[in-house]
């Protein structure tokens, strides 16, 4: 099924309105920040698009954290973001992230926001398409618990690259692909980042997504990520998976096997953040990716102004609308992809 032109316009209008009403009802303020930036958050596998000596943002995270550090209080925005060469049925080089931050909040509260946003956008779209409104409950599952359930592997999530390889290859060699950057001259942190990212991508594609997609209505938060995959989230003792020594307070929310949102308890330590960026820079070097500057201004804000304790998440607006329409292809819903 593909949506008619008029319905494409109508579902996006309904969805944006639903998102704004929800946040307003929760007391978050809508903000605007520049899309073209002189620094972007460093990621090994997210490529920014250059725009006359600057970059188009890959997410509004650094800009919004700048506002939080200056005392904005709880905020959200629907931000256009750009990621080079991501083109597929559920990927576009340009899309919109609904991104929000709550002060002093645990990720738990932000996950409730994810659930509420999915409900209110699904309802708004159902009304436009004259579909039946319905409620589906969410499951919250620990990362290592899901690894065990989908593969039988017992991981703690703090293994180094060599230990991870040993555990995986001992029982499931077909689930191992040699990661880049595993030579002795590479620092341990960078090796771990490379190995965990490669393994996570492989596991996600072969095991997690098919498992999540078995029920197209299933809604799952995957919580407590391995420490090497912390990205910009805080690392600390687990809340859910008590047997693990330390976890990243990062979660991903999936609907019917489609990744929809990613959230963090935000890292506030400038030194730790700088080290993580350095690992990414080193990995990007080894992968021969274009060099990106260290986000010096963002690090200075963390160090000098300080980020208040906060949690945040980002959700893909187009994917959310697509799922609300019961579809699994962006070309079926985007108003300007209809020729």
């Amino acid at each position: 099924m593909r949506l008619s032109f008029d319905r494409r316009i109508a579902v996006f209008d309904a969805a944006s309105h639903a998102v704004r009403s929800y946040f307003r009802s929760q007391g978050l303020r809508e903000v605007v920040t520049c899309v073209r930036r002189s620094e972007v958050a460093l990621e090994p596998y997210i490529e920014p698009i250059e725009a006359s000596r600057k970059w188009l943002q890959t997410s509004p995270e650094l800009a919004m954290k700048g506002l939080l550090a200056r005392g904005s209080g709880a905020i959200y925005q629907i931000a256009p973001v750009f990621r080079r060469a991501e083109i597929g049925a559920m990927h576009r080089e340009e899309f919109r992230l609904v991104e929000w931050y709550r002060l002093g909040a645990a990720t738990e509260k932000v996950r409730r926001d994810v659930e509420a946003l999915v409900d209110c956008v699904f309802d708004a779209v159902a009304d436009v398409l004259e579909l039946r409104r319905r409620r589906v409950s969410w499951e919250t599952r620990g990362f290592c618990e899901l690894v065990a359930e989908t593969t039988g592997l017992r991981l703690r999530g703090d293994e180094d690259a060599a230990a991870l390889q040993e555990i995986v290859t001992a029982s499931l060699p077909e689930l191992w692909v040699d990661p880049p950057a595993q030579t002795a001259d590479v620092e341990r942190g960078t090796r771990d980042l490379a190995a965990w990212t490669a393994w996570f991508s492989h596991w996600s594609d072969l095991c997690l997504e098919p498992w999540l997609a078995r029920d197209p209505n299933r809604r799952v938060h995957v919580v407590e990520f391995p420490v090497a995959l912390a990205a910009l989230s805080e690392v600390g003792p687990p809340i859910r998976e008590r047997q693990r020594p330390v976890v990243a307070h990062r979660f991903e929310s999936h609907v019917g096997g489609v990744e929809l949102a990613n959230g963090y308890r935000e890292l506030r330590d400038a030194t730790e953040q700088r080290e993580r960026f350095a690992r990414v820079t080193r990995l990007r070097e080894l992968l021969a990716l274009p060099p990106l500057p260290e986000p010096a201004q963002f690090l200075a804000e963390l160090r000098e102004l300080g980020l208040p304790p906060c949690s945040g998440a980002a959700m893909g607006l187009e994917r959310l609308v697509m799922l609300a329409c019961g579809l699994r292809e962006l070309s079926a819903i985007l108003p300007d992809s209809l020729r």
Binding site: E86, G88, S201
Partner: peptide, 12 residues
């Protein structure tokens, strides 16, 4: 042709 990618992961 199918492109899949965990948000922060490697593209396949």
């Amino acid at each position: 042709f199918q492109f899949v990618k965990p948000g922060k992961g490697q593209g396949l």
